[in-house]
Amino acid sequence: MEGWALPEINLQQCNQCGACVEQCPTGAVEMGPEGPFIARPSDCTYCALCETLCPQGAITCPYEIVWGTDGP
């Protein structure tokens, strides 16, 4: 199992509106000097709300589609 996946934030597309910071249900996102980042990775549930609400389409929560019975 690879690392803990997090939403990907493309800062080139982001206009720092702050919607993801305000509306993340677990408060996992914070605004840094360069833009938002996942400040508390272990709080992020990968619910993809930030992907839905980002007006710039700057956040994505991609999935792999795999066959398997490969562990938990």
Binding site: T60, E64, I65, W67
Partner: peptide
């Protein structure tokens, strides 16, 4: 869609729900 895009070995692409 899942049957067509399910991968077994190497992951060739990832999909957002969008």
């Amino acid at each position: 869609f899942l049957l067509e895009h399910g991968e077994t070995n190497a992951i060739t692409r990832r999909w957002t729900q969008e």
